[in-house]
Amino acid sequence: NQASVVANQLIPINTALTLVMMRSEVVTPVGIPAEDIPRLVSMQVSRAVPLGTTLMPDMVKGYA
């Protein structure tokens, strides 16, 4: 089972991601792979992401 990136806190719209905002977790459906966490740092979210939400490619500007 592949771990995905999950929000560790509420991430407001247009916030630049930092390591403390993200954790890896095995979830369904699968989201952005956990190994991409270093690449996500400083990228902005395109919408508010609630705590515990799996990050999907369309939620991060410039990821897809």
Rank of each mutant, 00 (worst) to 15 (best):
V45D: 01
R23A: 07
Y63N: 04
R47F: 07
M56Y: 12
Q9C: 05
A48T: 09
R47K: 09
Q2F: 10
R39V: 09
V45C: 04
G62C: 03
I32K: 00
T28D: 12
V49L: 11
R47W: 06
A16S: 11
V20H: 08
Q9S: 08
T28L: 10
V60T: 01
S42T: 10
A48C: 05
V45L: 11
L55D: 01
K61C: 04
V5Q: 00
A64D: 13
P29V: 05
V26G: 05
A34H: 13
A3S: 14
G62N: 15
I32G: 00
M56L: 14
P29A: 05
Q44T: 13
I37T: 08
Q2I: 12
I37C: 04
Q44S: 09
L10W: 12
V20P: 11
P12W: 04
T15V: 10
T18C: 04
A34R: 05
K61W: 13
V27S: 05
T53L: 12
Q9A: 12
P57H: 08
V41T: 07
P12C: 04
L19S: 06
T15M: 09
M22K: 00
A64R: 03
M59P: 02
K61R: 14
V60M: 04
M59S: 08
S24P: 12
I13C: 04
P57E: 11
Y63P: 04
Q9E: 12
A7T: 10
Q2T: 14
L55S: 00
P50W: 06
M59N: 06
M56Q: 12
Q2G: 09
D58T: 11
V6E: 02
P38N: 13
S42Q: 08
V30I: 13
A64Y: 08
E35C: 04
N1M: 15
A7V: 09
R23P: 02
A34E: 08
N1T: 13
P38Y: 09
L40W: 01
D36V: 07
L17G: 00
T15N: 05
S46K: 15
L10R: 11
P33I: 08
P29S: 04
M22I: 11
P33N: 14
A7E: 00
T15H: 06
P50R: 10
P29C: 04
M43T: 04
G52E: 05
N8K: 11
L10P: 11
G62A: 07
A64W: 06
L55E: 00
N14W: 12
L17V: 03
A64L: 14
V60F: 05
A3R: 14
V27G: 03
M56P: 01
I37E: 03
D36P: 00
S24D: 09
M21E: 02
N8T: 14
D36R: 07
L40H: 02
A34C: 05
S46Q: 12
V30E: 12
P29K: 06
N1I: 14
K61I: 11
V60Q: 01
L17P: 02
V49T: 07
I32F: 03
L10Y: 10
M59Q: 05
